[in-house]
Design a protein around this nucleic acid. Structure first.
Lengths: 196, 196
DNA sequence: TGTATAGTATACCGATTGGTATAATTTTGC
DNA sequence: GCAAAATTATACCAATCGGTATACTATACA
């Protein structure tokens, strides 16, 4: 790992929470230099511009959540319990550093959908990956006869993700956990319904 | 209605879609002058600053959606059908001018929660109002014996709103309606479950 | 209709925006 | 330990940011 690669990683790690909290338009280059302690020259020596930093920061944020999910899923053998990992994580998302400014998928989607194609694409891909992760758990669960055969798994994933992201939004903006908990409870009900 | 009041209204109407699409940080004063055809002097003669325009724009956007909901609800006598008004509207939210850039509640919540207290408060209040509107329909439905007694109406509202907003986010960022439809179907199921 | 006032436009302000050219400094391979 | 290359800092750029002072113009009321 060369020096520049380390610096690049350092910049990403320091700015990722920033982008997640303040958004792409709300994060300035001086925010970036301030957070890293580096100068513009150094930033631009490692990235083509603000865009590239933001894109890398999103990947970092999404990757963090993904690795936590993966790790916790591995600890649970049953498909239904694997799906409930999402509920455990997002029920207390404020406690997770990676989700401090809210869910990066939600934040990026909402900001970028009408303003920033590259970021929008990243967010869209992230959702695709999320869909696939859920469907994969369902498929495995079906093979083990833990999950019912007779329901549309794509439909399940869509409503499931919507509940989680909607719940996160409610918690962040109201400052209360009522809405999030209600959404999580509903999502849990959905899981219990597809589990035999 | 004085001239200035007309101009003020004109500015709000022209910039409200802008703020909903590009967000607070993403909308500049030149965006505002461009959209209205007016000059900065005129904007600042009617508003104290960008903040005040944004706040008024949010009220306008939220009010538009609210009035559509109210109108359509009035056409339906049954409580369950009143609740389904939200599903009808958000299922095809792209067709509604007021929801062109997505749901203003969602957009504003996600952007402002960590960056703009006044806007955050407005979004939070909007959600409060939404909660109350749902609870009011439920209460009325219960009095008419159309809605079951034995469930937590706040919990219902929280999950219901989360589903809708999550679904809108999915539709906007993926460009496909699958996720939104799945969320709406789940929300409809929720309504059917509380209706006798 | 004249005049006070309300409303709008012009021209400017300092600060900050994202970005770059170049100089100074580290790393790196030999 | 030295030279070449890679990396970081400095100093600057034009453009734009939100905002203001002031001059002009339209409106409203006597």
């Amino acid at each position: 790992m060369t020096k520049a690669e380390k610096t690049r990683q350092f910049i990403i790690e320091k700015t990722a929470p920033l982008f997640n909290r303040k958004g792409y338009a709300g994060t300035s280059l001086s925010d970036i230099t301030e957070a890293t302690g580096l100068t513009k020259g150094s930033i631009y020596g490692n990235f083509a511009g603000k865009d590239e930093v933001a894109l890398a920061a999103f990947d970092h944020n999404f990757g963090l959540v993904g690795s936590i999910v993966k790790k916790r899923m591995a600890e649970r053998p049953k498909a239904a319990d694997k799906l409930k990992v999402y509920l455990d994580i997002y029920s207390e998302f404020m406690k997770l550093p990676a989700l401090n400014g809210g869910c990066p998928v939600l934040n990026t989607s909402v900001e970028a959908d009408d303003t920033h194609d590259a970021l929008k694409q990243k967010a869209s891909n992230a959702i695709d990956a999320w869909y696939k992760a859920i469907q994969s758990v369902i498929k495995e669960g079906r093979e083990k006869k833990e999950i019912r055969q007779k329901f549309d798994e794509k439909e399940f994933a869509g409503a499931f993700i919507a509940l989680i992201e909607g719940g996160v939004m409610l918690a962040k903006v109201t400052g209360k956990t009522g809405g999030l908990k209600a959404a999580m409870k509903q999502a849990e009900k959905m899981i219990d319904e597809i589990a035999k």
